[in-house]
Amino acid sequence: MNFTVHVDGASTADAHPSPVRILVLTGELDHGSAPHLQKVLEEAYAQQCRHLIIDVTGLAFCDSTGISVFLGARRALAAHGGSVALAGLNSRVQRTFRLTGVADAFPTYPTADEARAAILAS
């Protein structure tokens, strides 16, 4: 299965890019596809993204390589007062996060919209 990342809130024409960016992940995030996500994240950092919402509703598989990338994003954004939130965790991805011991490292929301509302309200 393929892995894709759709970026929401990244209009380059905008002189004041939104500090909140949503990445919608679809497919399988693993050793092979993690470098693609890493590249998208680095583009987001370069464009002054502060708060990242990762929508994993469509994520069919996530391994520890994927979790490493999420933790790396958390570290990179926290260094600038930012954050990483996860939206739409299915039971499989949730189990992987829990068993890996990183479930509490990320605020989680049912949907990306709810995550965005919470970040903008804070």
């Binding site: 520890s64 979790i67 490493s68 933790l71 958390r74 890996t100 011991g101 509490d104 490292a105």
Partner: peptide, 9 residues
């Protein structure tokens, strides 16, 4: 732990 990025396999 969460402060370490890798090595969870």
């Amino acid at each position: 732990g969460v402060s370490t990025l890798r090595g969870r396999g």
